[in-house]
Amino acid sequence: MTAAAAPAELDHGTSGAGGAAGHGGDHGPSTGISHVKLAMWVFLGSECLLFGGLISTYLLYKTRANGRTLPTDVFDIPFTSVSSFVLLMSSLTMVLALSGVSRGDDTAGRAWLLATALLGAVFVGGQVYEFTSFVREGVAFTTNPASAAFFTLTGFHGVHVSLGIVMLMSLFVSSVKGKLTRNNSETVEIVGLYWHFVDIVWIFIFTVIYLIPAD
């Protein structure tokens, strides 16, 4: 076995090539993607399953009224469409923020970071308003399986947006302090990845929950 497998592998040749490659510090990440960015991608993969589980739960339960009002009965589609549009636009401002920071244009970078956070905050504010008005109309968390699943799914998403806002504001603060420069603009890119992901998830949720009619 060894004999059969070995010769090709054993042909180590001269050690010439090793000289340069041998300095471990010189070789960057094996994939060419930085550790943190790769970690964010991997994490988002996991998040897909989290939202997948929550969306499935909602789909299973969306018509289980337990004799009371369903979330679908109290949806205000125009309102939610507007707040969805706001969130969608925040992806645009996120892109502009990244472009600002990586150009070294700190003013633009900061302005767009702030704008992104603000649009996110408008979305979360809209969600809070939506939740309270639903409760007033008789759809609370424990009303029926449908409402519990609805609030859990959209609530989880809202928490994700809020965490994104915290990250954006931290970026903003470190930019003001002069710690965020074009050299580490990758941090903005990584937060951007997260932000776009949360956006895309919302497009799914909006379509699945609000737009596809309950049968």
Binding site: L10, H12, G13, T14, S15, G16, A17, G18, G19, A21, G22, H23, G24, G25, G28, P29, S34, H35, V36
Partner: peptide
Amino acid sequence: DAVGEVETAETDEPAAVGA
């Protein structure tokens, strides 16, 4: 934060080791 920048000890020897 990453340890991507962990440095290796510098030596004068060729680092690779042939068979």
